[in-house]
């Protein structure tokens, strides 16, 4: 392990692409971790999953139109969120069912489009991501979007906290609750789309949910939860990338497994609620 670590550090100083991959993964770990806190506290975990899967047709259409996949993906991400709330508001279908219908349909459409059009899109890359092959333009986009999202959370923290905890009080005291809802959906979509390169469609939700859920188990203060979640996200990215390079494994899946391992450890061993402590307590 020691030599592997030395090799990894050596590789980092030798190969620019590896350094870039590391920065990108860390920044995504931080921004996904922070957005994820609001996502899990608002019970939107499934929504995040739905949006990430449903951007696929957007990626294909962007390719057809010769534009950056970002635009198509964002458009389909927002379309997904809107369709789900539209079905919920105009029928008695509950939101988990609406989510299931919309995302599977969009995912299926995306797969047809990608396999039928003669495209250079590598379905595998979109589904599972590969941060090591990230293009410079996508990397910069990731930095910019992450910056915007983090700044939004910083500026509107007060409003995000109040609407997430007590929506009714927020509404009664005149806060634009709907506006904040849309803001969160847009942040969720943007951050999901830029994460595609790193962990892929299938696993994006892990970066959003797992670090936030781990932090949720560890603290009873929202600001601490945000920082912890960001830290856990970044740590998963670094360790994941190291293991992926050292053992020649796909980066996205390794990052996800590292995050899940941290969650499992905290779930079992955290002092307050950890199962392991409970089992040994007299």
């Amino acid at each position: 392990m020691g030599t592997a670590l030395l090799n990894f550090i050596n590789d980092l100083s030798t190969y620019a692409f590896l350094r870039h991959a590391l920065y990108t993964a860390i920044i995504l770990g931080v921004s996904c971790g922070m957005v994820g806190c609001f996502i899990i506290l608002r019970g939107l975990a499934l929504m995040g999953d739905a949006i990430s899967h449903a951007v696929l047709p957007g990626v294909a259409i962007s390719y057809l139109l010769h534009i950056s996949y970002f635009y198509g993906a964002v458009a389909f991400g927002l379309l997904t969120a809107l369709s789900i709330s539209f079905i919920g508001q105009h029928s008695k279908i509950k939101s988990d069912a609406a989510i299931g219908i919309v995302f599977s349909a969009f995912l299926a459409l995306g797969i047809i489009l990608i396999t039928k059009i003669q495209s250079a899109i590598n379905l595998n890359n979109i589904l599972f991501g590969n941060v090591l092959t990230i293009k410079e333009s996508d990397r910069i986009l990731t930095y910019v979007i992450s910056g915007i999202v983090l700044l939004t959370i910083f500026l509107f923290f007060k409003e995000l906290m109040l609407t997430t905890f007590d929506r009714v009080m927020a509404q009664a005291s005149g806060l634009p609750v709907k506006f904040i809802d849309y803001m969160i959906m847009i942040m969720l979509t943007l951050i999901t789309v830029v994460s595609l390169q790193t962990v892929g469609v299938i696993l994006v939700v892990s970066l959003l949910i797992t670090p936030a859920a781990t932090a949720y188990l560890l603290t009873q203060k929202l600001t601490t939860m945000l920082w912890l979640s960001a830290l856990i996200g970044a740590l998963s990215a670094v360790v994941g990338l190291f293991l992926s390079v050292t053992y020649n494994l796909p980066s996205g899946v390794v990052i996800v497994l590292v995050a899940a391992s941290i969650f499992t450890f905290v779930f079992l061993f955290n002092q307050k609620t950890g199962l392991a402590w409970k089992a040994f307590r007299p």
Binding site: L41, K158, E159, M161, L162, T164, F165, D166, V168, M169, A172, S173, G174, L175, Y216, T219, Q220, K221, L222, T224, M225
Partner: peptide, 28 residues
């Protein structure tokens, strides 16, 4: 205008302390 809803709609596991919860009153 302050409104306190009938009990049961708030997430009692929310990461917020008693003091911060009272502080929310000053936000509007």
């Amino acid at each position: 205008t302050a409104y306190v809803e009938q009990k049961g709609n708030l997430d009692m596991d929310f990461p917020i302390s008693v003091e911060q919860c009272v502080l929310l009153g000053t936000y509007p």
